[in-house]
């Protein structure tokens, strides 16, 4: 129960940081609030017993903050207040309420916090993948870290697809940012 209150405190912190990040007009303070969400989330991953993700999140957050600050610093017109047109706001808020109603209905079927979903599923089904991953990761792959065994042995196709997506997104950013195009007059000459 004490862990539950601890996580609740962290979630309230994250929600407050998100509200400030959405509502402030200054872009730099908004970016800093995103950093607060990221580092708070990293601490929360650590207490949720996921040290792999905590390390990755804290390193990714530093890099993401560098990229975001690079985009917002030394720009003149960053103070853009106000909203989009009225009809769009009404429509999007109505969509948000509909999604919230459906989503909160869906949470009733989930097990209590503290009971993993695979334990709840094991009571009705015979085969649950996560139990095998925990039980056989050391004897069948030799890796003590079950997460490494899952992403690089049992579900390595997932990692291959991830490498492809990362390659494609970086390639897209390079193509967008490069200065000279293939048909520019300098290269034709």
């Amino acid at each position: 129960m004490s862990m539950f209150c601890f996580f609740l405190f962290f979630m309230i912190f994250l929600v407050i940081a998100a509200l400030i990040a959405v509502h402030t007009d200054n872009l730099l303070s908004s970016v800093i609030c995103v950093g607060a969400i990221g580092f708070g989330g990293s601490l929360m991953f650590l207490f949720l017993r996921a040290p792999d993700i905590a390390i990755t999140q804290i390193a990714v957050e530093v890099l993401g903050l560098i990229i975001l600050i690079r985009a917002t610093i030394s720009r003149d017109k960053t103070f853009i207040s106000g909203q989009r047109e009225f009809f769009g706001i009404v429509f999007s808020v109505a969509v948000l309420f509909a999604i919230s109603a459906v989503g909160l209905k869906g949470f009733e079927d989930l097990p209590e916090f503290g009971t993993p979903a695979f334990v709840a599923a094991a009571e009705t089904q015979e085969i649950v993948a996560s139990e095998d991953y925990i039980e056989q990761s050391l004897s069948r792959t030799g890796a003590a870290n079950a997460v490494a065994a899952v992403i690089l042995d049992w579900r390595a196709y997932d990692t291959l697809g991830e490498a492809t997506v990362l390659f494609t997104s970086i390639l897209g950013a390079v193509v967008i940012l490069r200065k000279e195009t293939r048909n520019s007059p300098e290269t034709i000459k």
């Binding site: 792999d52 390390i55 990755t56 990714v60 890796a143 003590a144 997460v147 490494a148 690089l152």
Partner: peptide, 14 residues
Amino acid sequence: GHLTPGGGFAGGVI
């Protein structure tokens, strides 16, 4: 990465 927390993703970012 297969014995301690970490792995290729975290190590690459570092």
